[in-house]
Design a protein around this nucleic acid. Structure first.
Length: 844
RNA sequence: GCCGGAGUGGCGAAAUGGUAUACGCAGAGGACUUAAAAUCCUUCGGCCGCAAGGUCAUGCGGGUUCGAGUCCCGCCUCCGGCACCA
């Protein structure tokens, strides 16, 4: 039984003093401004960025830490490869929680936000994360948000920003508009009152004009996860189809009413036109009111339209919600059959998609079939499926016929089969007859940026009685958010009650005017912030195009999957807008994207394993963890917990494994300092050193920090053993230890710097070059080779590494175990995988 | 419903079509200690066997291959996104 030196040598500390070591290095990094980058003179550019956080009142937990620890490990790794990356950090500082805190506690959002920023910045410091703080930004400062306003004006000038009436979520009790996120189960999150739709004048960005470019750009984003690209594709939701015009009939005759305008529908199945037995308009469609103008029960119908309009979106668009409709009493003419078909209004047609009107083809669409059944409307089969009973009508249809069958009674298309060619033939036919055309529709809607909230960027518009909406001239920017505001929480936007803000003069005529009191969606702030880091203190322009051309786009962006759609789509949109303004030479803001997985933990509240969050009460505080075991332990455990892109469950017990590992590294260092080992010059430790450098480097290149840590644990175990058993030379031990410290530095920066300094290296570990390996030194002279018989492992033999196939075969056949399992059968063939195995296949 | 992703020991997990279970946690046994903590050593998928060894096992059922956790086909379960989008 081996005895350990620790037991008899009291001078070696079993655990290291993480508190003083971590403080020492954090102070030094801060004092030396370690991560500062000179944007004008730096030779090699590399821009990495972690999504900037919202400074909420809650301290960051270890789940948040994963993002920043991952990023810092990358930063240090790159730096040791000679790339001094730009790695800035800032604050996404506008948003609702600040306003809610103001209402709840009477604190103004400004000091509240800056207090939170201070706390979070200290947390970053205690994790040992290196940011270039000289470029710090906070989106709630006039120095930042004035450029939101500048961007808005520029977009207004180009017609990309515009105003229109739009339905929004309205709480009748709070008397204010709510963001979608503030509507919980159809009710106001604050007072519980059912939320209704209300039409209001709102500002929009014309993102739908960029739909095709945003879609096409995804194809070139090789550095993005497929999952995110797919989510964006689905969100944009491009559908190819056709628009078809339906004339309105005189009464229920086959004759068109020459006075009435036609109704245009959008469909992805123009080939089913013969089966359209009625039209359906969204009740909100402006044509609905016209069509019921002469209806005997007009008032009741208008009440019903209002009721549908006031139904919350959540309820209306839910899967389980009932279909409800009313006939208008009017008819349209099916251009394929010439037959009059009734026009209905129904809640299952959405006003915002396509033309807000559809042709209903019950035989070939599940929703139309359900509605036709419910209202006893005719069902006409166009595509007849195989084995369809002769003589039976569409009314006996159980399910819609979707992608099969042959067309019948649909001149001139009888015999056609469902598919893209038939659709093209129909579109050509429409164009010939002048009743329709090919059309592409998108699920994506224009970006509504108006918010009836205080804590955001004021929209730089004034309303003049005479001249209407007027942009604030650029020279008058920023429109500063007033500080002297009352937060009562009872009514709408507090800005509306600040007379000194609202009352102004028209920039055109100097007459009395009122300011716009809406503020911008905070996603506007984050849609271009990566460019502001490059000109953080420039008070003359939004950013310097020359610096942006050199440093942007961001080479590596790191953040949570929750931003897969909104933030990343908006940023890609605004980047194209800036490109079209001639301000940046690229269209994609983020070349490579990495989404780290969530950290989960058991929640007492729900009894389930859930995402770590304060509201679920399952957070782990890094403050306590750092106090007890140190930041390096948290860092190593976080990186070791599992593949960084997958979600991972936090284990309080398993953290101690990371701490034990670091303590072992510490003890090796102490031992090397105090009692240099003397052993034989054995190549094995040196071989393992090279093999570990190779493994760790390959792991780090593909963000596989979990297996990189595992490889370092193995090297540590090998080194410990070599020291105890005195099987390696002093030189080999010291070389292995130095490489270990270098490879471990990105994960555990404080401990490794301290040990590096103890070994009398002058240069900081961070400034050393990443160790290199020699493949020749990884190879062994003799290797263990697996021998299979008919694919089953039967023996392992030791053999020269450079033995040729004939020698390998002879050695394998010489094995007694192999002979036994071959059972006298003849050898059919032998498959040799060099360096690994030989498979002897017998003839059976 | 549509589109993704994932199912491997008691647990977190590893594995370019080539030795399944590396690394770590927990457990068991031991050393040191008056004792505990810490540290160190050994052991640790199931079944059969004193052992050597055999055999089964990567959600389930098939297939391709000398060889499948990995590739193909068909299912099951869980997670995520979208969802009355015509």
């Amino acid at each position: 039984m081996r005895r350990t030196d620790e037991a008899t040598n009291p001078t070696i500390q079993l655990h290291y003093d993480h508190k003083s070591i971590e403080k020492k290095w954090q102070d030094r990094w801060e004092k030396q401004r370690t991560a500062e980058v000179d944007l004008r003179h730096s030779q090699r550019k590399y821009y990495m960025l972690m999504m900037f956080p919202y400074p909420s009142g809650d301290r960051l937990h270890v789940g948040h830490g994963r993002n920043y620890i991952l990023g810092d490990a990358l930063y240090r790794y790159l730096r040791m490869h000679g790339k001094r990356a730009l790695n800035p950090m800032g604050w996404d500082a506008f948003g609702l929680p600040a306003e809610n805190a103001a209402i709840a506690r009477g604190v103004h959002p400004t000091p509240w936000t800056f207090g939170n920023i201070k706390v979070m910045k200290e947390q970053f410091r205690r994790w040992g994360i290196l940011y270039d703080w000289s470029k710090e930004i906070a989106s709630c400062t006039p120095e930042y948000y004035r450029w939101n306003q500048w961007l808005f004006l520029k977009m207004l000038e180009k017609g990309i920003a515009y105003k229109k009436r739009a339905p929004v979520n309205w709480c009748p009790s709070c008397n204010t508009v709510l963001a979608n996120e503030q509507v919980v189960d159809g009710a106001c999150e604050r007072c519980g009152t059912a939320v209704v739709q209300r039409d209001l004048e709102q500002w929009f960005f014309r993102i739908t004009d960029y739909a095709d470019r945003l879609l096409a750009g995804l194809d070139g984003l090789d550095g993005w996860p497929e999952k995110v690209k797919l989510m964006q594709r689905n969100w944009i939701g491009r559908s190819e189809g056709a628009e078809i015009d339906f004339a309105i009939a005189k009464g229920d005759t086959r004759e068109a009413d020459p006075v009435e305008a036609k109704i245009t529908v959008f469909t992805t199945r123009p080939d089913t036109l013969h089966g359209a037995t009625f039209l359906v308009l969204a009740p909100e469609n402006p044509r609905a009111i016209e069509l019921i103008a002469e209806h005997p029960e007009r008032a009741a119908l208008e009440d019903w339209i209002d009721k549908v309009r006031n139904t919350p979106r959540i309820e209306r668009e839910g899967d389980s919600s009932a279909k409800e409709g009313r006939p208008t009493g009017r008819y349209a003419i099916n251009p394929a059959t010439g037959a009059p078909i009734p026009i209905w209004l129904a809640n299952y047609v959405l006003p915002g998609y396509g033309t807000g009107a559809i042709m209903a083809v019950p035989a070939h669409d599940a929703r139309d079939l359900a509605f036709a059944r419910q209202e006893k409307l005719p069902i006409r089969l166009v595509y007849v499926p195989e084995n369809w009973p002769v003589g039976s009508s569409g009314d006996s249809l159980e399910e819609p016929v979707l992608d099969q069958g042959v067309m019948r009674d649909a001149p001139p298309f009888d015999g056609a089969e469902a598919g893209p060619e038939t659709i093209q033939r129909f579109i050509a036919w429409f164009e010939e007859m002048g009743v329709g055309r090919a059309k592409v529709s998108y699920r994506l809607r224009d970006w509504l940026i108006s918010r009836q909230r205080y804590w955001g960027t004021p929209i730089p518009i004034v309303y003049c009685e005479e001249h209407g909406a007027q942009p604030v001239p650029e020279k008058d920017l920023p429109v500063v958010l007033p500080v002297d505001v009352e937060f009562t929480g009872r009514e709408g936007n507090p800005l509306g009650r600040v007379a000194s803000f609202v009352e102004t003069t028209c920039p055109k005529c100097g007459g009395p005017a009122r300011r716009e009191t809406d503020t911008m969606d905070t996603f506007v702030d984050s849609s271009w912030y990566y460019l502001r880091f490059l000109s953080a203190h420039d008070s003359t322009k939004i950013f310097d195009p020359a610096i942006a051309a050199k440093w942007a786009p961001v080479d590596q962006y790191i953040g949570g999957i929750e931003h897969a759609i909104l933030h990343l789509l908006y940023a890609r949109f605004v980047c194209r807008v800036l490109h079209d303004f001639g301000m940046v030479p690229f269209e994609e803001p983020f070349t490579n994207l990495f989404n780290q997985g969530m950290i989960t933990r058991f929640s007492e509240k729900s009894g389930r394993i859930e995402k770590m969050s304060k509201s679920r009460g399952n957070t782990v505080s890094p403050d306590d963890l750092i106090e007890q075991m140190g930041a390096d332990t948290e860092r190593v455990y976080t990186l070791f917990i599992g593949p960084p892109d997958k979600e991972a469950e936090w284990s309080d017990e398993a953290v101690s494994g990371a701490h034990r590992f670091l303590s072992r590294v510490w003890r090796i260092g102490q031992r090397l300092n105090e009692a240099p080992p003397i052993g034989p010059a054995d190549g094995e430790l040196e071989r393992q050193r090279h093999a570990t450098i190779q493994r760790v480097t390959q792991c780090m290149e593909r963000f596989a920090y979990n297996t990189a840590v595992a490889a370092l644990m193995e090297l540590t175990n090998a080194l410990t053993r070599a020291l105890e058993e005195k099987t390696a030379s002093r030189f080999a031990c010291e070389a292995a230890f130095d490489s270990l410290l270098q490879l471990l530095h990105p994960m555990a920066p404080h401990l490794t710097e301290e040990l590096w300094e103890q070994r009398d290296h002058i240069e900081s570990l961070l400034d050393t070059s990443w160790p290199e390996y020699d493949e020749a030194k990884i190879r062994r002279a003799r290797i263990e080779l697996v021998v299979q018989v008919d694919g089953k492992l039967r023996d392992r033999i030791e053999i020269d590494a450079d033995a040729d196939e004939r020698q390998v075969r002879a050695a394998a056949l010489a094995s007694e175990k192999v002979q036994e399992h071959m059972g006298g059968r003849e050898l059919a063939k032998a498959v040799v995988v060099p360096g690994r195995l030989i498979n002897l296949v017998t003839r059976r």
